[in-house]
Design a protein around this nucleic acid. Sequence first.
DNA 1: TCAATAGTGTCTGTTAGACATTATGGA
DNA 2: TCCATAATGTCTAACAGACACTATTGA
Lengths: 232, 232
Amino acid sequence: MRERLFSVVRPTARRASVAIDLVPVTPMRGGLATLLVPSMDPRAREPWILPWDAPRDVETLDDGAARVCRAALGGRSVPLEQVGAFGDGQRHPGEAEISITFAALVPLGGASVALEIEARWFDVDALPALAPRQQRIVAAALESLRARLDLASVAFRLLPPAFTLTELQAVYELLVGRALHKASFRRTLQAAGVVEPLAEWRSDGRGRPAQLFRRAPVDDRAIRRGVRFELL
Amino acid sequence: MRERLFSVVRPTARRASVAIDLVPVTPMRGGLATLLVPSMDPRAREPWILPWDAPRDVETLDDGAARVCRAALGGRSVPLEQVGAFGDGQRHPGEAEISITFAALVPLGGASVALEIEARWFDVDALPALAPRQQRIVAAALESLRARLDLASVAFRLLPPAFTLTELQAVYELLVGRALHKASFRRTLQAAGVVEPLAEWRSDGRGRPAQLFRRAPVDDRAIRRGVRFELL
DNA sequence: TCAATAGTGTCTGTTAGACATTATGGA
DNA sequence: TCCATAATGTCTAACAGACACTATTGA
């Protein structure tokens, strides 16, 4: 069978149903958690779905994702990352043909803010049953966060403005999926100048209180000074 | 203004015009080149566009991209990478509302195969005028190749099965955007066992002939042996 | 012999990781 | 005082990069 030639036939864009799906992600209890909302669709078999909406006429996809995000998180705005587009060419009841997915990076502790809707955070290792495509979407979103070259920027966006180095290390470990060496981690952060100490300490009730840090304003320094740390 | 609540209102997917755009990429004359086709749309201002088509009813997006790819490359199949979805919410004449973009990794030398259509390879640093969105799409595709965590797999897919180490290094340098140290590069490849020497040599006419290599079947070895080389 | 490219040997500064130790809070 | 957590000091093996060198082809 012969493929269509571009120079002869001009293709016409096809209209397809499109949804913007959101995968909200936050560090929680030593792991990552994602936010699901109850499915209001009577045709759906699974009770939980990812927050979603249709893109609107006059907004960019990024703006649409931000809108879905605000609706799901009770008005809060958090950093978004596009994960990709999914579509298996089959029409499942109540499911768009094409789903464009964004991960929402909710900072540590952000899961505890009051949600205006009936939503729940689930540990990503203990999700309820999801529709097949939704399952793939969640997996892809986590994968894309973990595989990101610029790990530092993902890590910092999963943390509040002030954090302890232990928290930063824990987030890094979630992302790379293995334990890191504490002394090494701290030495390199300092050498690269990617964090700045604050004049504040925080105690968890037991043990020595930890100093709080923030991300340093400029972090090209890591490159300038030739730091080779694989995680920065 | 109040945001919509998921628990109250169930959104409905919107139908939008969707296109699959392809960014074919290949190493060429010391840089990267991309394939453009003549625009057959009389409404278009720019004479060249990226190869594209509409997704079909019963195919996945990946299959659709593979189809566009075969049509553009004269039947050849090459590895594809999804870059992302683009849509500014505005309707430009002859342009889909949403464009889902794939990069096609055409191995070194693949640009010289006969194309069945009126297509041309352009150095990515000397592209003709493109529509604004197409320009953004090309930039994003290159960015995503360069920023990939798994540089090795992108590099090998931009090379034929048998290649010289100088070629491999050149591709790496294109991807990371800087010169690499020859001795270091080779030492690390050997230590990690990511390439295997073949019993073949190739001469460019002058200088000592270079040995040909292929990618080693298993490359978890790099991890097993604890290789830390930033590029593997 | 020269030019050009492929490929290797040796050295050194830097760093990741191991390990041990000190510091500082609460009970 | 004991426990728990934070934070740091020292040592070592390993590696990236610098540099110089050898190897192998064609002209």
